[in-house]
Design a protein around this nucleic acid. Structure first.
Lengths: 354, 354
DNA sequence: CCGCGCAAGTTGATCGTTCATACTGCCGAG
DNA sequence: CTCGGCAGTATGAACGATCAACTTGCGCGG
């Protein structure tokens, strides 16, 4: 400890970092001056060894198909973590089992204090494993398919997102609004489906035959949309569980010689970078990823500091980003409720940070 | 050290990890059995403290605008690092100065052994700073604008990529091939420009007035392409420094009532996920990011193990991914050299891993 | 028969912190 | 005047591995 440059003991320097309120202001200032002068930073390894906390958080990289959401999350996580004096260690894994192997390794080696779980899904084995092994973690995504969640999570209210999408289209005069979803059983998909269903029922819009489901993907979206458009009473608005589905929907609309945003409106989910680049620009529900990251870190740090605290849950609201793929319903020259400019949704100008 | 379960000393267990060749095979096996049985892993903090190596590599997250390249790189880096017993610690930074601040912090705290530099650019201050502070690192990207590079790097031969794009279009019968670039001075942009120029001259194709430059972006690509198409002798092929530029080019072609891939062919650079999703699909030069990541890790580990070794340089070749945006030149019913199926370029089927 | 050298494994010290506890004044109550 | 209590600081030990130096056993040449 070279910082006896300040004529104090090691421990006092240590306290200057870890418990500054225990020092007399005068001493603190002297120690801080010495620290700055010498450019001293406590060695991480020694600190971890003694205190059994590494100040590192582990996070699996998602497969890149998540449409830029992971990218934003990781950025925001790193920022939020660093602001609290933590670092983020990333790893990739082909599947959940491999992820658990990495957990085992990192925990046994004492390389991380806790984890941020991403991409939680129905019957996810990871939370149970982590609880069993007394690891600290927080999930981005609720514990789908589990009766009582015993762990902390932060999530985005997908139902609210699709509800708002329905309301948005309804305000534009649409009265047959379809939903392109994924097969029942996926927590996220069911959540978004319910938002559509709930809003449609509240607005007395039809739902029968208007919900189509298939595996996520552009081709799925295209096929399902073609089917919808060829039906006896085709919808004029389509809300999609993902942007990929929505891209497929846009294609099917073009395929049918129709114009997206004029003849049929489409809303996607996740506001992936592609959404802003497509023509027409894809209206999409954007998750407040930056806030999610902050909450994740907050919750995880609470989890780390207090053993055995009650699990925290945070549900954040997404926001609809309106682009050209959603427009007034055909024939509705004066849409019922949209005489005033739309209040709750913002028109996007260029790139808008959350 | 609970692993005296094997009736040996601590140090022998340590050797089983760090120098297995020093143990008698028989002993080694006994120790390994005990390790497996107890699920023991050496504590990272203690190991780092004593050995002054953390087995962690720092890597800045790039701003997400890099069109998916960073995402792939990070995945591959994590995989390659883990395969060599290292972990990757990520951080974000708004600019190079902030990045250097993080370097300072991580190095002083002894939290990482070295860095992978991404997004190197003209007159980059980071390599100099790192060299000056005796930090180990390897750059993804050459040291542009510096006479003698004193550090290791791995890069992709951008000139080769654009050259191949020119050859590809030439084989399809195009004889006026333009280039959309960024203003001179950016190393990457100049490199890609030279590839176009070199190939065009070798094939005796005109270059005069066919190279247009502006800041990277969709709108730039659109403007430059409009200008080209309105010129006296418009090109039939356009090679772009980036996919964003190429997207702009596609739009300008549509704007002009032309068909991309039939009337005018377009080739982008980076093969961002958007390229496969656009209609027509965008032909694009794909960087071998996974190989880059492996090389980066190899070079960095060599750098870590041998102090003062000569800097390593690796230049890898990209590969053109052909999609619908590049087709036979209009009027060239029998393109000169393409009677046989194109040999060196593969037609993409769905998603192709590098 | 001695001693040298090498292979295989052991031991004490050490890395740079923080923990637990002990010390030192100083103040005020008894 | 003494002593308990407290705030502020100092001291010894410990965290769990690796390093460097030391032991032990064995084969082999002189």
């Amino acid at each position: 400890m070279v910082a006896r440059h300040a004529a104090v003991s090691r421990q006092t320097v240590s306290n200057a970092f870890n418990a500054p309120d225990r020092l007399r202001p005068e001493t603190l200032q002297r120690v801080r001056a010495a620290i700055d002068e010498l450019g001293y930073r406590p060695n991480q390894a020694a600190r971890s060894l003694r205190s059994h906390s590494t100040r590192v958080i582990g996070c699996r990289l998602l497969p890149s198909n998540s449409g830029g959401v992971l990218d934003r999350l990781l950025h925001a996580l790193c920022d939020a973590a660093r602001a609290s004096g933590y670092d983020v260690l990333t790893f990739s894994a082909r599947d959940d089992d491999e992820e658990i192997e990495v957990y085992t390794d990192l925990l046994r080696r004492g390389a991380v204090d806790g984890f941020v779980l991403t991409n939680t899904h129905h019957l996810d084995t990871r939370p149970g494993w982590l609880l069993e092994h007394a690891a600290r973690f927080v999930a981005f995504g609720r514990a789908w398919g589990v009766r009582r969640t015993a762990h902390s999570w932060v999530d985005v209210d997908g139902a609210k997102g699709t509800s708002e999408a329905v309301e948005h289209l309804a305000r534009l005069g649409h009265n047959r609004i379809a939903f392109l979803g994924v097969p029942a059983g996926s927590g996220v998909g069911d959540d978004r489906y319910r938002g559509w269903e709930r809003a449609a029922e509240q607005l007395s819009l039809p739902v029968k035959g208007l919900a189509q489901r298939a595996e996520d993907g552009i081709e799925s979206g295209r096929t399902l949309t073609r089917r919808l458009l060829e039906s006896a009473r085709p919808p004029t608005g389509i809300i999609c569980v993902s942007d990929s589905m929505a891209i497929g929907a846009l294609r099917a609309i073009e395929d049918g010689g129709l114009s997206a945003g004029r003849d049929v409106s489409v809303v996607g989910f996740d506001d992936s970078p592609i959404a802003a680049v497509l023509r027409p620009g894809l209206s999409s529900v954007r998750q407040p990823i930056e806030s999610v990251a902050h909450e994740l870190i907050d919750v995880l740090l609470a989890e780390l500091s207090e053993r055995g605290r009650a699990p925290a849950r945070q549900l954040l609201a997404p926001r609809l980003v309106v682009r050209e793929s959603s427009g007034p319903a055909p024939g509705a020259s004066r849409p019922p409720k949209a005489r005033r400019p739309l209040p709750s949704h913002t028109l996007e100008t260029k790139e808008r940070k959350q």
